[in-house]
Amino acid sequence: MTAWIAGVDGCPGGWIAAFQPLDGPQDCVVRVLPDLAAICEAPEAPAIVAIDIPIGLPERVGAGGRLAEQVVRPLLGPRRASVFPTSARAVVEAPDYTAAIALARRGSLQPFAPSPPAHAIFPRIRAVDAWLRALPDRRGRVYEVHPELAFASLNGGAALAHPKRDPAGADARRALLRRAGLPEPVIAGPPPRGARSDDLLDALACLAVARGIARGRGVSYPDPPERDAHGLPAAIWTLLPDETPP
C-alpha cells in the first residue's frame, strides 16, 4: 500500500495541502481543504502531515514566545520577523482581540500583546489544537513546521535574502523546490482556487520537510520537543543537512 505525506499551509480558502506518495516523487496532488480533519481523512490518508501552525500552547510564555520560536528565530536572519511569538493558551482562547490584549496586559501570562497578524491565525491554532487534543492517536502524524525555516534548510542552512512575495524571493524558492526534486508542473503551475502562489510554495516547502521526517531525517527545534499541559509537542521541524540538495 502506498504511503502518502502532506505539506500544509494556511490560505484564504482554508488550508492548501500538497500530497505526495513516498514512492512517487514526481507525483503531487494539491488541493484546498477546510480543516486538518479533511486533510488527514483525504483519499491519500497521509501518514505524516507537516503543517505551518503552532502546536503546543504554553500556559505562560516569555517575551520571545515558546522555546521553539526562540531557537529558530536567530537561524533566519532577515526572515526572523516571520516567526511570531506564540501566545499563552488563555490568550489564544480569548473570545476576541480586545479580550486577548486585556489578558496579555495583566502580565502574568505573557509580557507582550499579540500582534494583529498573530491574532488573525488564533482561530486556526484553536481548531488544530482542539482536533489534536480530541484525537491523541493522530498526534504522531502531525508536525509543526515553518516554511522560512524549511527554505533555509533547503538552502544549505542559509536564510533567503528576499521575502516570499518579492519576485526575486519567489524565484529563489521555486529554484530550491526544483533542486529538492519536487515536480516542475506543480512548482510552476497556478495554485488551486482559494490559495495564492506564495501559499503553494510554502505548502511545497512543508512537503519537503514531511518527506525528510518520513525518511527519519527530520530535526526538531528544540530537540527533544517541549510538551504543553495537554501533552502536545511544542517544536518546529525541518530537514537535517543531508536531506537538503547539494
Score class of each variant (00 low, 15 high):
P116I: 15
G56I: 02
A113Y: 04
D129V: 06
P123F: 01
V92M: 08
R79G: 01
A127P: 13
G77R: 15
R106H: 13
G77Q: 11
G107M: 02
R80T: 07
P58K: 13
A68W: 00
A102R: 06
L76T: 13
E59N: 15
A94D: 01
R124P: 03
R80D: 07
I125C: 10
V71S: 07
A100I: 00
P111R: 03
P116Q: 09
A120R: 11
V61H: 03
G77H: 07
S82A: 13
L67A: 12
E59T: 10
R60C: 13
S87R: 11
R80F: 11
A130K: 09
R73S: 04
E59R: 11
A90F: 13
I55Q: 00
A113E: 15
V92A: 09
R106P: 02
A104W: 01
A120W: 13
A88F: 05
R66I: 04
P78K: 07
E69V: 00
E59P: 05
A104F: 05
P78Q: 14
R79Y: 03
F112T: 02
H119T: 15
R105W: 04
E59Q: 15
R73H: 09
P114S: 10
A104P: 05
L67F: 12
A120D: 12
I121E: 00
E59A: 10
I101C: 14
G56N: 06
E59F: 15
A113T: 08
A88K: 00
R80S: 06
E93G: 06
G65F: 03
A99M: 03
R79Q: 14
I101V: 14
R106Q: 15
P58M: 14
R124G: 03
L67N: 09
R60G: 07
V72K: 02
V91R: 04
A90V: 15
I121W: 03
P78I: 10
A120N: 11
S115M: 08
A102D: 13
P117V: 05
P111D: 09
R124H: 04
V71W: 07
H119E: 11
A81Q: 09
P95F: 05
A127V: 01
V71F: 11
R73F: 01
G77V: 08
P117Q: 08
I101Q: 15
R126D: 10
D129F: 09
L67R: 08
P114Y: 06
F84C: 07
F112K: 05
L57T: 06
G56W: 00
A99H: 15
R126Q: 06
P123S: 02
G65Y: 05
R79S: 14
F122W: 04
S108N: 09
P95G: 03
R73P: 00
P116C: 04
Q110W: 12
G64M: 04
R126P: 06
P74H: 13
A104C: 12
V128A: 08
Q110L: 06
